[in-house]
Write a protein that binds this DNA or RNA. Structure first.
Lengths: 232, 232
DNA sequence: CGCTCTATTGATAAACCTCAAATACAGTGG
DNA sequence: CCACTGTATTTGAGGTTTATCAATAGAGCG
């Protein structure tokens, strides 16, 4: 596995480090423990006592909430440079969600005590955290509204666009979702079933909006998809 | 209008003041501007530039997100002692939601500059805010999961219980929702229609779980309702 | 007492889920 | 390189849930 991390890319993506000099960051990083995760491994489970915070360096995490009946709602995907569980560990609470590695991943971990020390040394961290949490609150509130008011096909469009913006990569074909994303995953993210997602993607492929295969989706006509997502 | 506010009650409800001595609070309060709102007045609108933070002293605020098609999703109700818009004003952002007075209300308002000064004087405010925001993130994520996975009747039960816990008052009849709550409101909070809410409440009244009339709901058998909400 | 807003209830329809069966695909080990 | 096996995907048929529409009743207010 390639061990090189593009830290400057990490810096720019992470809301954590707003207002910090770049030369202070290696210091902060040095207190963390770097660790590799195989695909599918669970980093932490909903309800467990929170002991660590994570920043993704490579790969991706799927953050979800599980329902008793076995179904899951995907809350968000965590990309390189982004944090998860920063606050629950600070507050000494339980994790409110479950995090799982999508594909081979790497993360930087801090335990509770280290986080508290860092917060004392760099008080700005609390303010930055506040910004991150508020952004996520906003995101989920918007999706909550959409889930209440919009039809499935429109919601699938919004979901795909959201994931595309956060994790898309330009290719000659169009914008590729850069990790394994099954119909079931997209359904869990949207709040529908894999069958409905499958039918929808077939329709879109006919229209030339997307190209999809096993656990892989490429948006070939983002403009059309955006227009559909907005007007229904 | 009665102008007496039970400040000790406010203190105990507000996550803002964790770790403060009670005698410092009047100081914080004195920087705010106290103001009365008539029923139905909009305090701030989604998309407006955020200029003020609010703490409810009397009455209640309805915080919602509006969809283009006119429908609204109620995000939460703000009770006496609770804050809203604390962070968006700090960050200089737009309000992500709309807030409206439910019944005659009173709020303490701080403008952006005052909030920043307060934060400097009492750094603990940032940490307390973090706790509040995380709690709300948790709440909406849980409701998001429920909206995805549960049936309408179960969701209405959960909604009513949630509102009951936050704004219920014991009476001889049972636990009364202590403000005007129409079928439409409960529908907007749950993500359904007023018709479905009405039918559901009729059914529950037959079972002896609730008693409802115009814009008024009393939970007469909370235990049965909880059990139903959990098992479906 | 009339006006307006809210609630109730029935009938109908639409959206979407569930189930079933067939097919495609990726990775594995011989 | 190929057959094999376990997933993932597709697609159709049918059923359920819940929204929508329409009409009526009830409550509060001036």
């Amino acid at each position: 596995m390639n061990n090189q991390i593009d830290f400057s890319d990490i810096f720019s993506r992470s809301g954590w480090f707003v207002g910090f000099e770049e030369d202070k960051l290696p210091d902060i990083f040095s207190f963390g423990h770097r660790r590799v995760y195989e695909s599918g491994v669970t980093l932490f489970r909903e309800g467990d006592h929170a002991t660590k915070s994570y920043m993704v360096l490579k790969g991706r995490l799927k953050v979800s909430k599980l329902h008793e009946d076995g179904r899951e709602a995907i809350v968000r995907y965590i990309n390189p440079g982004e944090m998860t569980a920063a606050v629950s560990v600070l507050k000494g609470k339980d994790y409110p969600v479950t995090a799982q590695a999508i594909g081979p991943s790497e993360a930087l971990e801090w335990d509770r005590e280290t986080m508290l020390n860092l917060m004392n040394t760099y008080p700005r961290i609390a303010i930055n955290l506040l910004g991150i949490v508020v952004e996520r609150l906003d995101d989920i509130q918007t999706r909550y509204l959409e889930l209440q008011t919009e039809r499935v096909e429109q919601r699938i469009a919004r979901s795909l666009l959201r994931i595309m913006r956060q994790s898309g990569r330009k290719t000659s074909e169009g914008i590729l979702i850069d990790f394994r994303l099954s119909r079931q995953d997209l359904a869990d993210y949207t709040g529908t079933t894999l069958y409905t997602v499958s039918r929808t993607l077939s329709r879109w492929e006919q229209k030339g909006w997307t190209v999809s295969s096993r656990e892989r989706i490429v948006v070939t006509n983002p403009h059309a998809l955006v227009s559909f997502a907005e007007t229904g």
